[in-house]
C-alpha cells in the first residue's frame, strides 16, 4: 500500500537544478530514509511535498489524491506534517501554545464560537490543551509547558517541533535532520521516539546525516545527489552501492 508516490519531480532555482526527475514511493507504516550530501536537494523535496515550493515538473500522489501545485495548508490538512531543518518554532509563544497551534487543522472553532465562548468551543479547547500536554510529555519535554519556545535548549526545540507536528495527527511525518545538534543520549531517545511514532501507525520520512541512525531505523533508504536519486533500497544495499560511496567521498570530498 503506497501512501506517497512521487513521479518525475523537478525543481529549478534560476540555473540550478535542485531536483531532477525524482520518483519514489513510500508505503504505509514505513520508515523511509532520505540521505545525500549537502545541497543534494533533500530539503527541497520536503518543501515540494509540503507545498512550500511548486514543482516545475512532475506530480505526486498522497493517500490516493494527486497533487501538483497545492497550498501548504491543504497538504497539511491531507495529513502531511513536517519539522524544519533550521527549527521554525513560534519563538515567542509557549511550548504548549506551539503544540496547540499544531491542532489547528484538526479543530473547528470559528470566530463566532470563540466570541460566544460556546460549549462546543470550550470542550474543543480543553481537549486541544489536554492533547497538547500529552504530546509534550510523549516527546519528553521536561521543562514547564509554559516555557517560551525560544528559551528551550536546541534538543528540546527539536522535540517540540516533533510534538507540534504530531499534534496534526498526520499520516506522514516528515522529519528534516531531527538529530542535528543532539548528543548521543538525546539521539538514542529520538530513535525510540521515532520507533514509537511508527508503531502508532504513522509513516515516517526521515532526512538525516547521522548514518547510524538512518541504518538502524529505516526500512528503506533513498540517496539524492545533485538533485537526482542515485540509489534506493534497504540500508545495507545502499551502504555498499559504489555510486553512493563515490557521491559521499566524491570529487569535492564532502
Amino acid at each position: 500500500m503506497k501512501l506517497l508516490e512521487l513521479s518525475g519531480i523537478g525543481k529549478r532555482f534560476g540555473g540550478l537544478n535542485a531536483l531532477t526527475d525524482v520518483s519514489l514511493h513510500i508505503g504505509r507504516g514505513e520508515i523511509y530514509g532520505l540521505i545525500g550530501p549537502n545541497g543534494a536537494g533533500k530539503t527541497t523535496l520536503f518543501n515540494v511535498i509540503t507545498g512550500l515550493y511548486q514543482p516545475d515538473s512532475g506530480e505526486f500522489n498522497f493517500n490516493g489524491k494527486r497533487y501538483r501545485a497545492a497550498k501548504p495548508h491543504v497538504l497539511a490538512g491531507a495529513g502531511i506534517a513536517r519539522t524544519f531543518q533550521n527549527i521554525r518554532l513560534f519563538a515567542n509563544l509557549t511550548a504548549l501554545e506551539n503544540v496547540m497551534i499544531g491542532r489547528h487543522v484538526r479543530t473547528r472553532s470559528g470566530v463566532m464560537g470563540s466570541i460566544m465562548n460556546s460549549r462546543a468551543m470550550r470542550l474543543e479547547e480543553k481537549a486541544c490543551r489536554d492533547k497538547a500536554g500529552e504530546l509534550l510529555n510523549l516527546v519528553g519535554l521536561k521543562k514547564p509547558h509554559q516555557t517560551l519556545a525560544k528559551n528551550l535548549s536546541y534538543g528540546e526545540q527539536r522535540r517540540l517541533e516533533i510534538a507540534r507536528a504530531l499534534a496534526m495527527e498526520p499520516l506522514l511525518l516528515a522529519l528534516d535532520e531531527p538529530a542535528a545538534g543532539m548528543n548521543a543520549t538525546e539521539t538514542e531517545n529520538l530513535k525510540e521516539l521515532i520507533e514509537g511514532i511508527r508503531n502508532a501507525g504513522i509513516t515516517v520520512l526521515l532526512i538525516e546525516h547521522d548514518v547510524k541512525l538512518i541504518m538502524g531505523l529505516c526500512d528503506r533508504v533513498a540517496v539524492l545527489d545533485y538533485g537526482r536519486k542515485i540509489a534506493e533500497g534497504v540500508p545495507d544495499e545502499v551502504r555498499n552501492d559504489p555510486q553512493v560511496i563515490s557521491a559521499y567521498l566524491g570529487v569535492d570530498g564532502e
Partner: peptide, 8 residues
C-alpha cells in the same frame, strides 16, 4: 523581476 521563491 524574476520570481524567486522565499527560502523555506
Amino acid at each position: 523581476g524574476e520570481r524567486l521563491a522565499e527560502r523555506a
